[in-house]
Design a binder for these strands. Structure first.
Lengths: 197, 197
DNA sequence: CCAAGAATCTTGACAATGTCTAAATCGGTG
DNA sequence: CACCGATTTAGACATTGTCAAGATTCTTGG
């Protein structure tokens, strides 16, 4: 009856493993993440997670999907209230960088190059969903005549790449989180007006 | 006398470990990299590498330094012959992406977030050296009046971030290497002329 | 209602790995 | 030439991912 009673069946082990894995990732990084450790933390036998995740890689794949879903939510929230295009881009980039700063290990898992064939499609879907909102920003800008013409996909890649690159620099410590806010605004400004004089 | 005779002392084990580690990284990825495996490949006892690399992390740090040195050389070579600013940027980005495509695992090691305090300085130095040439590109462009004014460091970060982000997308498979060449030119073009209309 | 059958979980085992310690070997220096 | 530090070896240990076999619970069809 009580929540704490020990049942043979956990109830929702899969979700619990994912939740705990994200915690470990955020608090202790990727190498600290072990299936056995998670099982221990959840008070479950060491092989229990294997019923829900074939591999350790399968867990990483699931973490990547969950990560892109959450990143998408964060960016949606950041773009709930709208201002000028520049302001919106800054808000979007800021949300992205906050996410990267708070979950650096998760971000590197999300962009790891070892997703299985099957989950690759699921991840691609989550990626598309996550990046839909920021890309829409640019198409709307084009509709208002504020953004240069051209395939919005292409223009979007440039913006996303710049932000993702900045996130990598922050995550690897070459740029401190304190610097990142200023840099972010400079990057958006540079993107907006271009390099050529 | 011959090279293949088995000596107790290897001669230059440290360099041999680094070389082999890079090979494994390129051919089989990061999880396939094991200290014992490398020792086995070199015909040396399993604990021999520990004399040259305290940790597995110390090996990763050394790999990161070597990686940035090589990346710097690659970019220097790409910028040996110069053309227009746009051509130079494309050449630089192309070299960067080729490096990223050929050594995706190494690149993620280079931008990993777990470098030890001591080697952090050495890595930062290698990073600065590697990115010196592309940054100089922009200062020269400013001198010729082809590039907008402003702190070249700041402008450089935008360019580097965009390329690095694109490299991440390629490395994680969201962009195929075939697409990357075209995208690269589009990204440079977008950077040059900006988003605002 | 209840008897399969599927899903979930446990226990036990195995090979591999990173790391530590003590001992053996080698190279150079006084 | 003896000695000392650097290098390498051998052995051991805890930890981990994964597999196989069995126990327990849930579900579902008859």
């Amino acid at each position: 009856m009580t929540e704490t009673m020990t049942r043979y069946h956990h109830g929702d082990l899969r979700a619990a493993v994912l939740r705990r894995a994200e915690e470990v990732l955020r608090e202790s990084g990727t190498d600290a993440l072990s299936l056995r450790g998670i099982a221990r933390d959840l008070g479950v036998s060491h092989a229990a997670p294997s019923a829900h995740f074939r591999d350790k890689n399968a867990l990483f794949d699931a973490l990547a999907v969950a990560g892109f879903r959450r990143l998408g939510e964060v960016m949606d929230a950041a773009l709930a209230t709208r201002g000028s295009l520049t302001d919106d881009l800054v808000a979007f980039a800021s949300a992205y960088l906050d996410f990267a700063t708070d979950n650096p290990a998760l971000l590197s898992v999300m962009f790891a190059r070892k997703h299985s064939e099957t989950s690759g499609a699921e991840i691609a879907e989550a990626v598309a969903a996550a990046f839909a909102h920021p890309t829409a920003l640019l198409t709307e800008g084009q509709a208002r005549g504020e953004v240069v013409d051209g395939d919005p996909e292409v223009i979007g890649v440039t913006v996303l790449a710049a932000i993702q690159g900045l996130a990598t620099f922050v995550g690897s410590g070459f740029v401190t989180p304190e610097q990142s806010q200023g840099m972010l605004e400079d990057v958006v400004a540079t993107l907006m007006r271009g390099l050529a004089r």
